[in-house]
């Protein structure tokens, strides 16, 4: 956007570019390269073998399952919350927005711990759940809850400013013309926000699949059962299996790269439909 305004003298400019480049290479590119280099340290056969382990497959399946439940949940509720906050004025609105932001400033470890305090056998609802044979902590529901907590703000925070900026004019017009609330949402609102929605879902998903601290606290660390990919990576790494750990890590690194590409694509082509995207991104 900014035209090449005052390129400065060649030397100063090149020094700055080199300095920034060096910093980024050392701090971003090299750590990424290490993941793949270590994953293939013993060749492609070892890589495939590590991926073929039943526990590895189970961890991949579990991570996908958790994301497949947590992300749609947060998408729906992100939409609902954004509708409520962006389309109406009511007292306590800024407080509500702050509460939605809360998970960003809570340490992931605390996000997981709160569910142990609630649903562990020693927790507030523990005895009741045990009496009815319901398992939450050390099982799938706990993993999902912790993931939902951590990723809740992503969709809502992306949509609120977008929907506020678009105002309520189009929706009101549609209502006047006799459309039902659902029709307004489907035909008017959704097409306006779809790129922003996709953007929020993308970031929400990246975080959901990669979350470590929160799920670590509620998992119980049963290999092949409650170990998600990041937890399985830790278990392999602590079990002296560096190749295995980096092999699974390389899958998550590829997920990160795909996320970055899609994100850049959305930003490049639909910048106006994302509004304030840059400012919002910095909130994770």
């Amino acid at each position: 956007m900014a035209p090449e305004h005052h390129p400065g003298t060649g030397a100063g400019r090149i020094v700055l570019i080199l300095l920034a480049g060096l910093f980024l290479v050392a701090f971003l590119l090299v750590p990424l390269a290490v993941v793949f280099s270590e994953a293939f340290a013993k060749g492609g056969a070892a890589y495939l073998d590590a991926l073929g382990q039943p526990d590895a497959r189970a961890a991949i399946g579990l991570t996908l399952l958790v994301a497949a439940i947590a992300v749609p949940l947060n998408t729906v509720f992100g939409l609902v919350a954004a509708w409520c906050i962006a389309k109406f004025e009511f007292p306590g609105k800024s407080l509500l927005t702050t509460v939605i932001d809360l998970p960003f400033s809570v340490s992931p470890v605390i996000s997981g711990m709160v569910y142990v305090l609630m649903f562990g056998l020693q927790g507030y609802f523990g005895p009741f759940l045990a009496a009815h044979g319901i398992k939450i902590v050390f099982a799938l529901p706990g993993l999902i809850l912790a993931t939902v907590f951590v990723t809740f703000p992503f969709v809502a925070r992306q949509l609120i400013p977008l929907m506020q900026q678009q105002g309520t004019g189009e929706e009101e017009a549609a209502i006047v013309l006799g459309a039902s609330g659902w029709q307004v949402f489907r035909r008017v609102t959704l097409p306006n926000i779809r790129w922003g929605l996709l953007y929020g879902v993308l970031l929400c998903n990246a975080r959901a699949m990669g979350e470590f601290g929160a799920v670590s606290v509620v998992s119980g660390h049963i290999r092949g059962l409650t170990d998600t990919m990041p937890l399985y990576i830790e278990a392999l790494y602590n079990g002296y299996d560096a190749v295995g750990a980096f092999t699974v890590a390389s899958l998550l690194a590829m997920l990160a790269l795909v996320t970055l590409v899609l994100k850049a694509f959305l930003e490049m082509n639909y910048r106006d439909d994302l509004t304030l995207a840059a400012a919002q991104v910095s909130r994770h």
Partner: peptide, 28 residues
């Protein structure tokens, strides 16, 4: 069309969890 393409890519990212349903004995 583009929207669908990106949405599809995202859906693939999310993946469809493989259902391991074969009933067999298990121990923890």
């Amino acid at each position: 069309l583009r929207f669908r393409a990106v949405a599809l890519a995202l859906a693939l990212l999310l993946g469809v969890p493989a259902l391991a349903a074969a009933a067999e004995l298990s121990l923890l």
